[in-house]
Simulated scan of single mutants.
Amino acid sequence: MTRGRVRRRLAEAALAQVAPDAGDAVLACALCGRTIGSKVEWHHAVPKSEGGRETVPVHPICHRTIHAAAGNADLARLVAGAGGGLEAVRGLEPVARFIRWVADKPPDFHAPTRRGRERG
């Protein structure tokens, strides 16, 4: 199992293979689209509990927002439903509000994440 810097280097190497002419390619957050800073977390687009293996890079604050807005069962239903993937997650009102709010924040911005009211 790879962690931390090793996974980031692997992701950067994979990105360089996909876009070798990109020069100093940077990772972008799969949720908000902002540049990833010094900290990166990996979100399973399909929850591991549902057999998901592929991960996408996200900011720590974005990752917490995804899981605060919906549990794994809800995420699995969203991914399987029409539109699926992170597009469906972005359509959740708390996540959409968060994306608008975080859009102008720096890449390493962090703040406490509130848990969704419906989850308790």
Rank of each mutant, 00 (worst) to 15 (best):
G91D: 14
C62W: 08
A76V: 00
H63N: 13
H63P: 09
A80L: 09
N72P: 05
A96Q: 12
A96W: 05
I61W: 04
L92I: 04
A88L: 09
G81S: 15
A88V: 01
P60W: 04
R77K: 14
G83E: 09
A73R: 14
A88Q: 04
G85W: 02
F98M: 01
A69V: 06
R77F: 03
A70N: 10
G85Q: 02
A68E: 11
V89C: 00
V95Q: 08
R64Y: 11
R77W: 02
A68W: 10
C62G: 06
A96T: 08
L86E: 05
N72M: 13
H63G: 09
I66G: 11
L86S: 03
G85H: 06
E87G: 15
R77N: 14
P60N: 05
G71H: 13
L75N: 06
A88K: 10
P94F: 09
A96P: 00
H63T: 06
D74A: 15
L86D: 07
L86T: 07
R64L: 15
L78E: 03
R77C: 01
G91Y: 03
V79G: 11
A68P: 02
H67L: 11
T65W: 07
A68Y: 05
I61H: 05
V89P: 09
I99Q: 11
A76G: 04
I66E: 01
A76K: 06
I66P: 01
P60H: 12
G85D: 06
E93S: 14
R97N: 14
N72T: 10
A88Y: 00
A96V: 07
A80T: 04
A73G: 13
G84T: 03
T65M: 15
F98A: 11
V95A: 02
V95K: 00
H63F: 07
G85A: 00
I99E: 10
D74Q: 15
F98E: 08
L86Y: 03
A69D: 10
A82I: 12
A73K: 10
G85C: 00
G81R: 05
G71I: 10
I61T: 11
P60Y: 10
R90W: 00
G71N: 15
T65F: 06
A68N: 12
I66A: 13
E93C: 06
F98R: 01
V95L: 03
H59I: 03
A68I: 09
E87M: 05
A70I: 02
H59N: 07
A80G: 12
G91F: 04
R90N: 07
A96I: 08
H67M: 03
L92H: 03
A73N: 12
A73Y: 13
V89F: 07
C62V: 09
R90Y: 08
V89R: 08
V95F: 05
A73F: 10
G85F: 03
A68F: 11
I66C: 05
E93T: 14
A70F: 08
T65N: 08
H59D: 10
A80Q: 13
P60L: 11
P60R: 07
A70P: 09
V89S: 04
I99A: 11
A88G: 12
E87I: 10
P94V: 01
R77S: 13
L86A: 07
G83W: 06
A73W: 12
G91T: 00
